[in-house]
Simulated assay, not measured.
Amino acid sequence: MTYDLVVLTSRAPDVRAIVDSMVHAGETLRVRGAGGGALIQLCDDDGRPLVNIEAAQRVDVEGEVERLLGAEVTAGLTVPYWWVEVRASGGRGDAPALAHRFADAMVERLGGAVWPPVAPGGDEEGGNG
């Protein structure tokens, strides 16, 4: 079973922020593109995908994300902001934590929020890495 999370960033994700955040998730992970360039995968040494990162989508409509995730998630964000979906593989137990390390690093660099704020088994908001 996969584990999904959403990263909302105050600023548009640029290549540097994405690369730095992928390194923060795991320095030894391999990177490959998929989905015709719409997806980045972080993989283990055997090439198995652990985390899928989708291309950022700009959010321009006030209230759109609140309707889906709740107002507390977007507190402090003003449109436009960016929505990035991150999916951790269910095949490896540490994949959700890797996904959260990536997400937390993105928010640290670009501002924003992560939903849900804690990986399964995590005990503090935003504290997964």
Rank of each mutant, 00 (worst) to 15 (best):
G93H: 00
R101A: 13
S89G: 04
R58H: 14
I40E: 07
V65K: 01
G90R: 13
Y81S: 05
H24T: 11
T2R: 00
G47A: 14
E124T: 07
G93I: 01
V23W: 07
G127W: 03
R87P: 01
T78F: 01
A99Y: 00
F102N: 03
G35Q: 08
R16M: 12
D94P: 04
D4L: 10
H24V: 11
V51K: 10
L39F: 09
D123T: 13
T9N: 07
P49L: 04
Q41R: 14
A95M: 10
A34W: 01
E125K: 01
D123W: 07
A71Q: 10
D14K: 02
A38S: 15
A95K: 06
A17K: 12
G26M: 03
A56D: 14
P117W: 01
R58Y: 06
L68Y: 09
V59C: 14
A25V: 02
L5T: 11
S10Q: 08
G70C: 01
L98I: 06
S21W: 02
R32Q: 07
A119H: 15
D60Y: 05
L110K: 09
E66M: 03
G90Q: 07
R11Y: 04
I18H: 00
D94H: 04
R48G: 06
A99K: 02
V19E: 13
E64P: 12
D60R: 11
V114T: 11
I18T: 12
V118Q: 05
E27D: 15
A34C: 01
G35I: 05
E27C: 13
G121C: 03
V61N: 02
G35M: 08
V114C: 10
R67N: 13
V86I: 11
L8I: 09
S10D: 13
G93T: 07
M1C: 12
M22T: 15
G112T: 02
E27P: 14
A38P: 00
L68G: 13
W83S: 08
Q57P: 02
L8E: 11
A105L: 05
N128S: 02
G26V: 02
A95D: 03
G129Q: 08
L8D: 12
D123F: 02
T78D: 13
G26L: 02
V79K: 07
